[in-house]
């Protein structure tokens, strides 16, 4: 008996559907095996693809900026140049003061040389507060090394490393906690990551912390990491929750500096 066309067609389509679905499942199993059996190999394999993505992103931004209003861009550039000049002068003043104090005290801690790395992936590509950077074991990066932005503000630590890449967990990652200080009286707090680059912390209500107080973490000396933008407290609670906005915009990071824990 002659088979109807639609039945043959559906049988063929069914086998093609299953074979592509099987291909997808095989890819998923491959990802899972690579991630758990050879995690450094997965980072190494992913790095070239992430690099292509970064280049495409940069080129797209360059093309799109050509459509921006020239007057607006010029005004913004002039304002940034003025701000940069003021900050450079302030930096020089502070550096001179540090030199004077070092001479007075008679001792100083030599700065640890850092490893500069390009950021290949950042939030919001990453759904967690993690970065992927293009420096790995070959450059001297190791698990646990501190990561900071250019300027010295710590942002996270190395959690996984391969030959040519590493993964950074930011201090703002959910379930990450970091010791810090807040305010002029340096009240000790524990910063809890709240995701999206922000933090929270709980303090007793009697500590008199105000909106705008700076938050600092240990680094080279004491490093500012953010400031308090909101205080939340239940009327009957003995503690209040600080909502902290970070100084660093993690969504636009392009370069970071890795400070090795072990000085060579």
């Amino acid at each position: 008996m002659k088979k109807p066309f639609f039945r043959r067609h559906s049988a063929l389509a069914e086998s093609r559907f299953l074979s592509f679905a099987a291909f997808l499942v095989a890819i998923g199993i491959f990802f899972a095996l690579l991630r758990f059996v050879a995690p450094s190999a997965f980072l190494t394999l992913s790095t070239p693809i992430l690099r292509v993505g970064t280049v495409l992103d940069t080129q797209t931004a360059r093309v799109m900026s050509g459509f921006a209003n020239a007057q607006t861009l010029t005004a913004e550039r002039n304002a940034l140049v003025l701000q940069n000049t003021a900050l450079s002068q302030q930096n020089q003043t502070l550096a001179a003061r540090v030199t004077d104090l070092t001479t007075l005290v008679g001792t100083s801690t030599p700065p640890v040389p850092g490893i500069v790395a390009d950021v290949l992936a950042r939030p919001p590509e990453s759904p967690y507060d993690t970065l992927i950077i293009d420096s790995g074991q070959r450059a001297g990066v190791a698990i646990g090394d501190l990561v900071q932005v250019m300027g010295g503000i710590p942002i996270g630590s190395i959690s996984a490393v391969s030959t040519n890449a590493a993964r950074v967990v930011l201090f703002s990652a959910p379930q990450a906690s970091t010791t810090a200080w807040v305010g002029t009286s340096r009240v000790p707090i524990v910063l809890e990551g709240a995701g999206g680059g922000s933090f929270t912390a709980s303090v007793p209500r009697a500590t008199n912390i105000s909106i705008g107080d700076g938050v600092f973490v240990p680094g080279r000396g004491i490093q500012p990491i953010g400031h308090v933008v909101r205080l939340d407290a239940e009327p009957a609670a003995v503690t209040e929750t600080l909502r902290i906005r970070p100084m660093v915009n993690i969504f636009s990071l392009t370069m970071v500096e890795v400070l090795p824990l072990r000085v060579p």
Binding site: A21, L24, I27, Y128, T130, V169, Q175
Partner: peptide
């Protein structure tokens, strides 16, 4: 069209970006 794609992409996202310290 392909229901299994969600599981595979989820695995891929965790393989790329999840780490110790981002949650249990």
């Amino acid at each position: 069209r392909y229901p299994v794609i969600a599981f595979v992409v989820g695995l891929e996202l965790d393989a790329l970006y999840a780490s110790r310290g981002t949650g249990a």
